[in-house]
């Protein structure tokens, strides 16, 4: 892999909340068009990593580099220069905004804007923040909504949608920002079981299309099918990483084995 093909490079990311050290030097590499699944027990720091990548959390140390490439290998090619934030030094709000601009996040609890229609939710960022022409953005939003089967719902409010539909809107909202990197934080864990598959199917499609993604998930079958690399973390460190099939089928570390066994038995 040439360095220009790396979309995300995380080095030594550390974060404490008071006396509680949550991340202890995390390294992470995501090449262009690849999918990394982050797995690990609750409280291991997965959400904190994603939030740090989106500038919602300020790490204490380490660095994050987002390369100039990204988006899909076929479709959008955002023109954003490569960016490195070094958290050992003080980062400015401007740098945080630049980092945020490069990734888009899908939240566990969707976090749609309840006072806006589906369409308004999707175009708010591109129109208000990115200042792109409204007509163009609406056309793109409509196309994305069609793709996930929600075009007829474009004028509905979030409360009128099922959880699965809301999360698909959450995904469309993220895509509409044309990020280089998509971040998913347990996108299906708040959903009723019968609604999970529709959402996972959409994410799988995005992966096949070549989107670069980091996905926190407890859906091991989905991770095996979709992820190129699986990273298992526990207690704020990466315990084991490797190709999805290897980490999920033949984990080397004791803790990984225990975690996967426990997850499988729950189902």
């Amino acid at each position: 892999m040439s360095p220009t093909d790396s979309v995300l490079q995380v080095r030594g990311l550390s974060k404490s909340f008071g006396a509680n050290t949550v991340l202890r030097g995390i390294d992470l590499d995501v090449p262009r068009g690849k999918v990394v699944a982050l797995i690990g027990p609750s409280g291991s720091g997965k959400t904190t990593i994603l939030r740090s990548l989106n500038g919602l959390e300020l790490p204490d140390a380490g660095s994050v580099t987002v390369g100039a490439s990204g988006g899909t290998s076929t479709g959008v090619e955002p023109q954003r220069p490569s960016l490195t934030l070094d958290f050992d030094a003080k980062v400015s709000p401007k740098e945080v905004a630049a980092l945020r601009d490069r990734s888009a996040m899908v939240f566990q609890h969707y976090n749609l804007f309840p006072h806006m229609t589906v369409l308004q939710n999707v175009i708010e960022g591109p129109v208000r923040v990115q200042k792109r022409p409204r007509a163009e953005v609406v056309a793109e939003a409509d196309a994305l909504l069609k793709r996930v089967g929600l075009f007829e719902k474009r004028d509905s409010y979030p409360f009128e949608l099922s959880g699965g539909q809301q999360q698909r809107v959450g995904i469309v909202r993220a895509l509409a920002l044309k990020p280089q990197l998509l971040l998913f934080d347990e996108p299906t864990s708040a959903l009723d079981p019968e609604l999970v598959d529709d959402v996972l199917a959409v994410i799988k499609e995005l992966a096949d299309e070549g989107w670069t993604m980091v996905i926190v998930t407890h859906e091991l079958a989905f991770a095996r099918q979709t992820a190129d690399e699986v990273v298992f973390m526990d207690g704020g460190v990466v315990v084991e990483r490797g190709p999805a099939s290897q980490v999920l089928r033949k984990p080397q570390e004791e803790r990984t084995q225990q975690f996967i066994r426990r997850l499988l038995h729950e189902i």
Binding site: A97, M105, F107, N111, V129
Partner: peptide, 10 residues
């Protein structure tokens, strides 16, 4: 989460 979603979209 509404603040975070606002920040997320920039």
């Amino acid at each position: 989460g509404q603040w975070e979603a606002g920040h997320m979209i920039g």
